[in-house]
């Protein structure tokens, strides 16, 4: 639904985005990853039409991005806030009406969401009387209230306690099920693995990696396994089968991290061990997004 084509954005001496292209599919949750200052926010600001690119274009549902699309996008910026002196209900209504909802429709939806997230009693409270987590909840409601097709969340879970973070996560999944597409910018890799279908990694203004989470992880598998067993096994005997990366002895058990040699399989590893020791566990080591992220960023540095 969203194609980003060869975007370049230059700020004076600093190039924030350098020929970045992305494809975001409808109904998917897309993770936009990258270290601080990589250009994620610049890209998001272009999608939300806060700024315009120097060159390149953004296609939204087959049309070049224009101001008609504002009402179809919901954006929760990382730097977010509310009018401190304004009452919550009034404030969310105001933000919804700015997105083009009629007063009646906006009121109906605000009531629905407040009920759903147990915020009903907050209507007449002022923002300054709410805790930070409560403010975040209000902000989330304001972001999704106008039922946007594309929802962009920049660090959505910062400031939430685990309980509320879970509530928000479930709301995201539910909205996603109803067809909303998400762009999800974050540093928290565990939430990326939990939520995202696809990711792109941006580093130093360039896209260095993109694809589906499953594929990327597949790419990063390198035949490493955890083996846990009881008994004595001379690992030198099978030097042509695997290489020990890490070795630990815990309560009479041996835990090995082994890297299989080219062409060898886990079955062969088991066959070698089975006659000698009692096996408790065999796990493939699948790199976490965190590992991939760090690995990629370090490589490029």
């Amino acid at each position: 639904m969203l194609s980003i084509k060869h975007i370049v954005k230059q700020y004076a001496a600093h190039r924030a985005l350098d020929d970045v292209s992305l494809e975001i599919e409808k109904g998917k949750i897309f993770g936009l990853l990258g270290p601080n200052g990589a250009g994620k926010t610049s890209l998001i600001r272009i999608i939300t039409q806060i700024t315009a690119p120097d060159s390149g274009e953004v296609i939204f549902n087959g049309q070049r991005l224009n101001s008609d699309h504002i009402s179809q996008i919901g954006y929760l910026p990382e730097e977010r806030g509310l009018y401190k002196k304004m009452e919550i209900g009034e404030q969310v209504l105001y933000l919804a009406r700015l997105k083009g909802l009629s007063t009646a429709e906006a009121t109906r939806r605000v009531k629905y969401w407040f009920e759903k997230l147990e915020m009903g009693s907050w209507w007449n409270k002022k923002v300054e009387d709410l805790s930070k987590g409560m403010q975040q909840k209000v902000q989330f409601v304001a972001t999704v209230l106008h039922n946007p097709e594309l929802i962009i969340l920049d660090e959505p879970f910062s400031g939430f306690d685990p309980v509320n973070a879970d509530i928000i996560k479930n709301e995201i999944l539910e909205l996603n099920k109803q067809g909303a597409t998400f762009i999800f910018s974050t540093h928290r890799m565990e939430s990326v693995e939990e939520l995202c279908d696809n990711i792109a990694l941006i580093h130093r203004s360039k896209k260095i990696l993109d694809g589906s989470v499953a594929e990327i992880k597949e790419q990063y598998r390198n035949n490493t396994y955890w083996v846990e067993y009881q008994g004595a096994y001379n690992t030198d005997l099978s030097a042509d089968l695997f290489e020990v990366v890490q070795r630990e002895e815990v309560k009479g058990k041996t835990i090995l991290k082994v890297l299989l040699k080219e062409g060898r399989t886990a079955n062969q590893l088991l066959a070698a061990l089975l006659p000698v020791v009692a096996i408790h566990r065999l796990d493939e080591v699948i790199p976490t997004m965190n590992d991939i992220f760090i690995d990629q960023v370090k490589q490029k540095n």
Partner: peptide, 14 residues
């Protein structure tokens, strides 16, 4: 106020 409250970016996206 809008800047320090950080509501500006929310507003500017609308």
């Amino acid at each position: 106020e809008e800047k320090t409250n950080r509501i500006i970016e929310v507003m500017i996206s609308s």
